[in-house]
Computed example of a mutant assay.
Amino acid sequence: MAVKNSTYIRRNWQLYLLLVLPVIYFLVFKYGPMYGVQIAFKEFNFFQGIGGSEWVGLDIFREVFHNNDFFKALRNTLLLNLLDLIISFPAPLILAIMLYELRIVWFKKFAQTILYIPHFISWVIIGGIVLQVFGTESGFINNMLTGMGLDAIPFLSDKHYWLVTYLLVGVWQSAGWGTILYLAALTGINKELFEAAEVDGAGRFKKILHISLPGIKTTIATLLIINLGNMISIGFDRPFIIGNVAVRDYSEVLSTFVYRVGIESGQISLATAVGLFQALVGLIFLLGANYASKKLADESIL
């Protein structure tokens, strides 16, 4: 066995060499920072450093779980991620099927390009676009409404309107890019299945229902598990840039909470404890979703 392994390594040494940089990256930027996790159990002092700071055990976690702002941020994180899962998750799937069914090649390529572009736009720029389009006083839509004698809609200053705006902007920014995975999976389906279904008299909708969707079931299950695993974590840019003080009841999430208490207030131990809590709960969500998917659909990633 050892001889076989050494022969295989000598024959494919280029593949192992290509792995060196990714492995170094993960060791330095993923595993290395784990040393700092102990800050969650210490009263961190900048001057004494991590090793010299006083060990306080679970006191920081008790402080976190007695903080009302933390529970509000946790509620908002779960709410926004759940709504994103319901609204944003099906969007790239639907778009991918629509693009796959198009027969005009030039229009298909044009549509793909238009749909992919928002993914490459910085959230800072998107925030400016959102303000120009949905702003209460200076937004394009409200200027049109007030010009017609109608009342302006508080897209960014009323928490319920803000929630709808947040979700729709998220779909616009991410749906096009998400179609790439589904399109790749769709192109891997045997074309003879579609031809056979057409001979049997199946229409386009039935072919989608009985061939396309079952053919990419594994991809759908994998992405769903990953999304469920990320239920407790949320990106910083989108809620921070689109949110404001008027809608903080919905826009304050765990990532912005960590920024506010960790960077602005200097409570590094508290912010680290929240981050560790996110990681552990996220792991539980991921394993739970994987287990449920394996039992219900016989699909899993582990």
Rank of each mutant, 00 (worst) to 15 (best):
G188W: 02
E192V: 13
L78T: 07
G201D: 08
G266E: 12
Q132V: 05
L85D: 03
L156T: 06
L82A: 14
P92K: 04
L83M: 12
Y250L: 15
G275F: 01
M34N: 11
K159L: 04
A221E: 01
M34Y: 03
L74C: 04
T77I: 06
G243Y: 01
F134W: 04
P90L: 11
I117D: 13
F194N: 07
K30L: 11
L213G: 14
N227Q: 13
D237A: 13
Y116L: 10
D298A: 14
I114P: 00
I39L: 12
I126S: 15
Q112T: 10
F71C: 05
I117S: 01
E198D: 09
L163C: 04
N45Q: 06
L287Y: 10
G201K: 05
Q267A: 11
A297K: 03
A271N: 00
A175G: 13
Y16P: 09
L74V: 04
F61C: 13
F26H: 05
S138C: 11
D200A: 08
E195Y: 06
W106L: 12
F285R: 02
G51W: 14
L167T: 10
G282A: 14
F70R: 02
T187R: 01
N5G: 08
F205R: 11
I225K: 00
G229M: 02
V23R: 00
A297V: 14
Y35A: 15
L83A: 06
A184D: 05
L102V: 10
N67L: 06
S157I: 01
V258I: 15
V130N: 07
K30C: 06
I220C: 08
S6F: 03
K108Y: 12
D200Q: 07
N5Y: 13
A91L: 03
I104A: 11
L27R: 05
N67H: 13
L280R: 00
I189R: 00
S255K: 00
Y31M: 14
I241S: 09
I284K: 00
L18W: 11
L224M: 08
R260T: 14
L17W: 14
F71S: 11
S53K: 09
A271V: 07
M1W: 08
L79W: 07
F155L: 06
G203F: 08
Y8F: 15
S88T: 09
L302Y: 07
I121E: 07
L296V: 06
L283V: 13
L224P: 01
I125F: 12
L183H: 09
L186R: 00
G57W: 02
I50W: 03
S6I: 08
I225F: 07
F120M: 03
N68W: 03
G170N: 13
A289D: 01
M98K: 08
Y291S: 04
L82P: 02
I126P: 08
L58I: 05
R248Q: 14
L276A: 12
Y35R: 15
A197I: 09
I94P: 10
Y116R: 04
I232V: 15
T187C: 09
W162S: 03
F71N: 07
N12Q: 09
I39C: 15
E63K: 05
V124H: 10
V28Q: 10
